[in-house]
Design a protein around this nucleic acid. Structure first.
Lengths: 200, 200, 200, 200
DNA sequence: CTATAACCGAGACGGTACGTCACGTCTTGGT
DNA sequence: ACCAAGACGTGACGTACCGTCTCGGTTATAG
C-alpha cells in the first residue's frame, strides 16, 4: 500500500521547498491557475523539475500546498471571531469582511484555483477541510455557541447547518458570479440565518 | 479591414455539430474533464480539428455546449415544480430528488466539469446562468410565489435569496464533499429556509 | 509488419527536411557526435522536435542521413578514378588523396560519428554500404578491371579482397590512431597490395 | 593551489572496484553500450555513484577498464602463437580462431562498445594500444620473426604493415558487417599477406 | 587508544535531454 | 465554402541520468 519510491524526508531541502511554494503562489497570481506549469514553477524557484515531482504528486498538490502555507502560522487561537455580545452585529461585521476579501482581485486567482482543485480531487478536498476549513469553522462555531448561551440562537440549533446556510450562498455568488456581492447581501444573509435559527 | 474570420453559419454541417457534441459528452464521462482533449473529440467525432476550432473558441466552450444540449428540448413549460398546496412537502420532494440526482455517478463527471468551467470563465458563467440556470430558477420562483399567495411564505420574501439559502448549501456539500448529502439534509434545509422566510 | 503510424510523405515539408539535415551537419562539426542532441537540431533548424521524430527513428538515423546527403548529387559517373595506364601510380595518387582527406580536421567529427553509428546499428550499416560505399567501390573496381586487362593485376584476383587489403589498414589507422597516416604509408600499402595480387 | 582532488589510492576499496567493473561488464552484455548508465552500474554494484566518479573520469573509462580487466591475468608469456614451422598453416589456424571468436555473440556487445570508445576518445585509444593491443601484437611479431628466420617471409618485411594487411580487413568486415566472416576469408587473407611479403 | 580524516553507501539536488502529447494554425484534396 | 485529414511550430509533460553535493557509518592510520 506504500508508495513505490519514498524519498528520505530528513534530507529534504527546506530552501527548495519554500522556493517552490513561493514561486507557485506568485505564478498563480500572475498567470492564473490554468496557464500555470510545473516547468515555470521550477524555473522561477531555481529548482530542478524532479525536485518538485519528488515531493508532490501533481500540479494541484503543489498549488494546494502553496495556498495552504498561506493560512498557516496563525494556527489556533489567532482566528477567534469578535464577540461584542450582539451576534447579529458580529456576524454582519464578519460577513462584510468576507465580502470585502472576495472583492480583492489579489485573492481572486488563487482562491478560484483552490476551488478548481478541490472540486476535482476528493483527496485534496479532504486535506483542505482538515487543514484549512476546520480551524476556521471551529472558531465560528465557538462564537455561535456563545450566542446560544446568550439566548440569541436556538439551543438545539445545528451549527454546521447554520454556517452552511450563512456562507454557502456567499461562496456560490462569488464562484458563479450569479449576483452582486455586497454589504446588503451580507446583511440579508445574516438576517435570514438568524431568523431560521432563532430561539423558541 | 473586415473581421478576419466569419464562417458562414448557413453552410454549417449539422452532422458534424452533433457528432462533436456527442463525442465531447461521451469523453467527459469516460476520461473526465481534465484529460479531455480537442484531438480526442475530433477523432471520436470523425471530424477535422479545424471544424471544432471554426465554431467554438475553446475546449470549455465545446464542453459547455455539449452539456447545455442535454438540458434543452424540455425548454419552457416542461420544468414546472409540483404544487400540492403544501410548500414544505413540495420542496422536500424536489430537494430529495436533487439529492438523488447528485448521487448518480453518471452526472458526477460532467457536472463537476461544468462547474470547473464556470468558475474559471466569466463569459461561460453568464451563458450558463442565462441558458441553463435561469429557466429552472424561474420555475422554482413560480412555485414560491404560489406559496406566498397561499400565505405559506412572507409576502415580501426575497425569492432569490430564498433559493440561494435553500440550494447553495446543497451544491456546496456536493462540490466540496464537505458532508453527507442525504434526505435528512434536504429536509433540514427546507425547514431552515422556510423558518427564515415564514410569514409575519 | 508496417510501422504503426505512417505519416503522409507527400505532405512532407522539404524546407524542414533540409533545415534539419543542415543543422545536424553543422552541429556535428561544432560539438561532436556525442554531445549532439535532437533538441539542439530542432532549435537550430527552427523546427518542432516532433517533425524530427515523425520522419526519423533515432538520432543516429538523422545524423546518418545528414552525412549521406553530402555524398549525393555526384552520384554515378562523377566518381571515376584516374586511369593513366599505370595502376601503381594511379593507386598511389588516390590513396595519398585519401590520406590527405583524413587529415582534414573538418572531416574528422562527421566521419567518426558516421562510423560510430554504423558499428552499433546493423540497419544503418546496410544502408551505408548500399548508398555510400557501393558506388565508390564499384568505381574503384572498374579501375582494377582495367588494370587486369592491362596485365598489371592477376586475372583471377579477388577485387573485393584487393580493396579490403588496400583500404582497411588505412581506415584502421585513422580510426584507432594506431600509427602515422602519411604518404609513405599509402605508398607502402599500394606496394603490398600489388605484390599480393600481381599476375602469374 | 594544489590539485583539488587526489583520492588516496591506498585506501581504495578493492571490493567496490571489482563490483563496479563486474557490473559494467554484465550491463554492457545485457543492454549494450549506448544504454549503459553510471547509475545502473552503481546500483548493480551496490556502490555509491561518487565511488565511481572518484576513480574514473567518464563512463568510457569505466567500460574500458572493465574490458581491459578481461584480458589481464594472462599478461606476458601466456599469449605466444603456435609455431609448427609452417607459417601459412599457423597463421590460418590463428585467423580462423579469431574469426570464430568474432562469431561468438557473447563478445559482440563489449567489443563494439570498446571500439566505439576508442574511435571517439584519443586518450583511451592510447591506453588501449599500450595495455591491450601491444602485448598481443608483440607475440604475433615474434612468430613472424621466426618465419623470417626460416626464410618464409622477406627478411626486410615491415612486420607492422604485415599485421595490418592481415588483420585490418578482418576487423573491418566485422565492424561494418561488410561481408561474410568465415574460414575461407581468413585463409584468403593469409594467402594474400604471405604473397605480399614473400622472400625475394 | 583514541580521534580524525578518508572512503564508502545512499540519494537529494540543479540541470539537460529524452520521447510523447496536445495545442492552435495552416495546407491539401475531395465534395 | 466547408470539410476530413494531418503536418507543422510550439510548449509542457513526466522520466532518466548527468555530475556535484551533503549526509551518517565505517575503517585505518597518526597523534
Amino acid at each position: 500500500m506504500a508508495s513505490r519510491k519514498t524519498p528520505d524526508a530528513t534530507r529534504r531541502s527546506e530552501r527548495s521547498r519554500v522556493a517552490i511554494l513561493t514561486a507557485a503562489r506568485e505564478l498563480i497570481a500572475e498567470v492564473g491557475y490554468a496557464k500555470l506549469s510545473i516547468e515555470a514553477i521550477a524555473a522561477r524557484a531555481g529548482v530542478g523539475k524532479q525536485t518538485i515531482y519528488r515531493w508532490w504528486s501533481s500540479k494541484g498538490a503543489v498549488v494546494f500546498d502553496s495556498l495552504l502555507a498561506l493560512s498557516e502560522g496563525a494556527d489556533g487561537e489567532g482566528i477567534a471571531l469578535p464577540d461584542t455580545g450582539d451576534i447579529e452585529a458580529d456576524l454582519k461585521t464578519v460577513l462584510r469582511a468576507t465580502v470585502a476579501e472576495f472583492a480583492d482581485p489579489e485573492f481572486e486567482a488563487p482562491i478560484r484555483a483552490l476551488n478548481t482543485e478541490i472540486i476535482n480531487d476528493a483527496e485534496l478536498a479532504a486535506i483542505y477541510r482538515e487543514k484549512m476549513a476546520a480551524p476556521v469553522e471551529e472558531a465560528k462555531k465557538e462564537r455561535l455557541r456563545s450566542a446560544q448561551r446568550a439566548g440569541q440562537l436556538a439551543a438545539d440549533a445545528d451549527l454546521d447547518l447554520f454556517l452552511e446556510v450563512l456562507y454557502a450562498p456567499l461562496a456560490q455568488r462569488w464562484l458563479l458570479r450569479s449576483g452582486p456581492l455586497d454589504d446588503a447581501f451580507a446583511d440579508a444573509l445574516v438576517d435570514a440565518a438568524l431568523r431560521a435559527f432563532r430561539p423558541e
